[in-house]
Every structure is written in C-alpha cells, then in structure tokens.
C-alpha cells in the first residue's frame, strides 16, 4: 500500500508541497484568502523591517516626532508624548512593535487566528496612524499621494475590514464587498481615492517643485537602478510639476468613481488603479525599504493590494452560497 494511494482512497487531500490535509478542516484558499495572505505577507515584511538597526536608534523616535508639527494640538500632543516615551525606552518599545507586527502577520496567515489577528491589526493600525504617522499628513497639509498620504498604515486597517471573514458573506461584484456589502465598500473606495485626488491638488503636491522634490528626496540611499528611476522622474517633473499634479488628480478621480461603473469599465479602471499604485510606489522609492531605514513599504504596495480586492469578479455570489444552492 503506498502512501499516496492510501491518501487518495481515504479522501485525504494533499496540500501542495507540505503534506496531507484533513478534508474537513482545510480548504484551498479562495480569492479572499489569497488577499488575506497578501496582507499577512506585508505585515510580516513590516515586522522584519522594524527589526532593523535604525529602528533601535534615537532616529526612530525623532522620525515619529517629526509627524507632529502642523497638526492640531489635540493630535500633536499624543504624538509628542509617545515619541518621548519611545525615546526613553527605544529598545523595549521598538522590540515590542516588531514582535506585535510579526504576530499580526503570522496570525493572519494562520487560519485559527485570522479573526483575532485582523481585529488586532485594525486597532494597531489606527494607533500607529495617529502616533506614528500623524494621520498621514491629512490635517497638516503635508500629505500627498506621492509621499504616502493618507498614511500607509490606515490602508492596513481598511484591508482588514474589507477582507474580514464574515460568518455569512453578502453577494458583491468584488471581494471587498463580501463582508461590508458592495455599497459600503464602494463608498470606502470613493472616499480613499477621492481624497487622494483632492490632495494631489493641494500646494504640497501642486506647487512648482513639490512633486519633483518629493520624488528626488526618495532617491537618496537607494540602489542605482531605483535612484536612477526616481531621479529621471524627478527631472521630468521639475518643469511640469503643476500639470502633472492635475493629471494625477484627474486619474485618481476617475479611479475613485470606477467602482460605480459597469463591469468592463470598472475592470479597466481597477487595472489603471493597480498601475497607478505601482507608479506611486516607485515614486515613493519602494518606501525606502532598500535603504536600511524604511519602516514599511509605504502606500503604493497597499493601494495595489486594495485595488485587487475590488477586481470585478465573474460571479457576484459568494462560493458558499453557490454551493448551498447547487
């Protein structure tokens, strides 16, 4: 009796590469699960980036404190307080941050803990958005689609909500609407991309040298190919900054309304959203992760993952509902 024959006869189900599943407890990942795994992957990357030497230095707390200026006192006060606290206990605080993020990543990947980890990630992301990113520069006017606004970490929270494995999924034309419903998911998309379009028209982006300066600043410390790419982009934008900001705003506005359009048009605009996210990520210098000082991959990668959750599906009914009616 060979092992694989035994497995086949008993109904055992082989999980690619690592063993045999118990049929009743494990199902191959569906689209939402793959997207959850994408989120887990990014949390894991975040965690390991948090373990870098720079994060254990005074530079980390100074970086956090740097997000306070320009924010209202009620926002800036807690940022300064937490930065001081981290400054006094840098090693312990940063070690704890990294471990929390590691647990979030592994928790989302490990099915029995997925709800707990997603729920915890929402709370953690909101805290970091405030205390670590100064609400992404929304209130101090420094936010721009090219520098990570509205704050990369809030997109983690948004993804956690949209990818929440509800007990009963709702019919939706995209994965993001399975838990919240299509109407709420569309509204969240509209608010996010609409706010990005709005921020592209603010002086922080639209000023003559704003975009080129932002992109050129990202090139510092990057490997040659990425620095070259960013420097070329910055040179291109140097003479066309305001026009490029307007074009960017128009593209982002089209993307914002894309999810309300019929499926073929929606699909095209989601594809544009993915390409735009990739361009933003390059403009962000991949979040500085190749410089040894990046705390996270910044917003471009997360926007791309978010766009994938809105990819129009062929069938709007959840798999469980389909099998029940079959």
């Amino acid at each position: 009796m060979t092992s694989h024959v035994t497995d086949a006869r008993s109904g055992g189900r082989r999980i690619g590469g690592i063993g045999v599943a118990r049929e009743e407890s494990w199902a191959a990942p569906d689209t939402r699960r793959w997207l959850q795994l994408g989120l887990a992957f990014i949390w894991l990357l975040d965690a390991v980036l948090q373990f870098q030497s720079f994060m254990f230095s005074k530079g980390f707390s100074q970086m956090l404190a740097g997000t306070a200026p320009g924010n209202p006192a009620v926002i800036a006060g807690p940022i300064n307080w937490s930065a001081r606290l981290i400054d006094q206990h840098t090693v312990v605080a940063n070690g704890a941050f990294a471990v929390i993020q590691l647990l979030l990543g592994l928790g989302i990947a490990w099915r029995p803990a997925v709800r707990l980890a997603l729920g915890a990630s929402i709370g953690w992301a909101i805290a970091v958005w405030w205390l670590g990113e100064g609400l992404g520069g929304i209130l101090n006017g420094a936010g721009s689609p090219a520098n990570g606004a509205p704050g990369a970490v809030i997109i983690y929270a948004l993804l956690a909500v949209l990818l929440w494995p509800g007990k009963r999924d709702r019919p939706a034309p995209f994965v993001a609407g399975r838990f919240t419903g299509a109407a709420v998911a569309r509204l969240l998309w509209l608010v996010l991309w609409g706010s990005l379009a709005y921020m592209a028209l603010l002086p922080a982006t639209r000023a003559a040298k704003a975009l080129s300066g932002m992109v050129a600043g990202m090139a510092s410390g990057e490997p040659g190919w990425l620095a070259g790419l960013d420097n070329h982009l910055a040179a291109f934008l140097a003479q066309r900054g305001p026009a490029a900001a307007v074009v960017l705003a128009v593209v982002l506005a089209f993307i914002a309304v894309g999810v309300y359009l019929p499926r073929p048009a929606a699909r095209a605009l989601i594809a544009v959203a993915i390409v735009t996210s990739a361009a933003i990520w390059i403009a962000e210098g991949l979040g500085g992760i190749l410089t040894g000082g990046g705390t996270d991959p910044n917003s471009g990668l997360l926007l791309a993952l978010l766009a994938l959750t809105y990819w129009p599906l062929a069938n709007s009914r959840p798999a469980a509902t389909r099998s029940e009616s079959a």
Partner: peptide, 10 residues
Amino acid sequence: VWTADRLPGL
C-alpha cells in the same frame, strides 16, 4: 505565509 496558511490542515 504560505506554510502558515497550510499548517492547520496538517
């Protein structure tokens, strides 16, 4: 991530 996802199935 891929391995952790499959862990409960073993």
